[in-house]
Design a protein around this nucleic acid. Structure first.
Lengths: 144, 144
DNA sequence: CGGTATCCTTGGTGATACTG
DNA sequence: CAGTATCACCAAGGATACCG
C-alpha cells in the first residue's frame, strides 16, 4: 500500500500544502478580510462616530445580514482581537461592539485595498470588457 | 401580496445590498485576491525570475492544485488583465503565463497585505489564544 | 502538453425557531 | 434585545475522464 495512485499522492501534497498554508499568516489574514461581512462590519464600525455600535444597530446598518452571520462575524473578529465586546447587563441587555486598536489598524489596511481597487478599477474593467468581447465573438460563430 | 413577511423584506434588502456590492470595486478586488489560489499564483509568478511560467510549471510549483482550479484561476486573472497568456504553437503546445504590469501592481498590494499579516500575526495569535482559553474554561465546568 | 466537460462531495449561507 | 441551535440549500472545489 506504499505506492498509491497519482491521485493519492496529489491528495497528500494537498494536505501538506494545506498545513503549510496554516503556517502562513497571509492566508489567515486573506481569509479573514475576504469574509463577506468582515469588511463591511469593520467599515461600519469605523464609520460610526462613537466607534461603538450595538448588536441590533449593526444589523440595521447592514441590510441583508442574518443574525447568524452577524454573530459569527462578530465572534471571529472578537476572537482575533479585532473588535471588543462590551456587555451592559441592564434589563434589556445591551451589548456594544467597537474596533480595537488592532482592528482600527486593519481598517487602515482595508482602506489601502479600497484605494487600490478604486484606482485600478477602470483598468480591470477595460480588460474584462475586451476579454469578454473576444470570448463572445469566438463563441458567436456557433450561435449564428 | 404587497406586505410580505419580515423575512421577505430582509431578502429584498439583501438583494439590494448585493446589487450595491456589485457596484463596489472593493468587493470585486477582495473577492479576487481572497480566491484561494490567486494569491499563490501571483506570488509564484512574481517569484520566478523570468516572470513567465508554463502551465505545468505552475501546476508543479503549486502542490495540491487541480487543473480545473489552475485553469480557472488563470483565466480569471487573464480576464482581469492581471496575467498574460502566450501560446507558442510548437508540436508539444507551449503556453506561458506572465504577470502584466497591472498584475505586478496587484502583487505589490499583496505584499503590503502580507507585510501587515506578518507584523500583526503575533497580536492576533495572542488574542486568539486568550479567547480560546477563556472559552475552553467556560465550557469546562460542564465536563468536570 | 494544455485544456475542457462532467460528476460528486463539502461546507458555507441563510431562514426558522427557541432561550435568557 | 442578544444570542444560540437546527435544518435546508446552493454553489464552489476537487477528482475523473476525455479531446486537441
Amino acid at each position: 500500500m506504499a505506492t498509491q495512485t497519482a491521485a493519492a499522492r496529489r491528495a497528500d501534497a494537498r494536505a501538506a500544502y494545506d498545513a503549510f498554508l496554516q503556517e502562513c499568516p497571509t492566508s489567515h489574514l486573506l481569509a479573514r478580510i475576504s469574509d463577506k461581512w468582515v469588511g463591511i462590519v469593520v467599515g461600519v464600525l469605523r464609520d460610526s462616530e462613537s466607534g461603538s455600535l450595538r448588536y441590533s444597530d449593526l444589523g440595521r446598518a447592514i441590510p441583508g445580514v442574518s443574525q447568524k452571520m452577524l454573530t459569527q462575524t462578530l465572534r471571529s473578529l472578537e476572537r482575533d482581537g479585532l473588535v471588543s465586546r462590551t456587555v451592559t447587563p441592564s434589563v434589556p441587555a445591551r451589548v456594544d461592539y467597537a474596533l480595537t486598536p488592532l482592528g482600527s489598524n486593519l481598517g487602515c489596511l482595508l482602506s489601502d485595498v479600497k484605494r487600490w481597487a478604486e484606482n485600478h478599477f477602470e483598468e480591470v474593467h477595460a480588460a474584462r470588457t475586451s476579454y469578454d468581447e473576444a470570448t463572445t465573438a469566438a463563441g458567436a460563430g456557433a450561435g449564428a
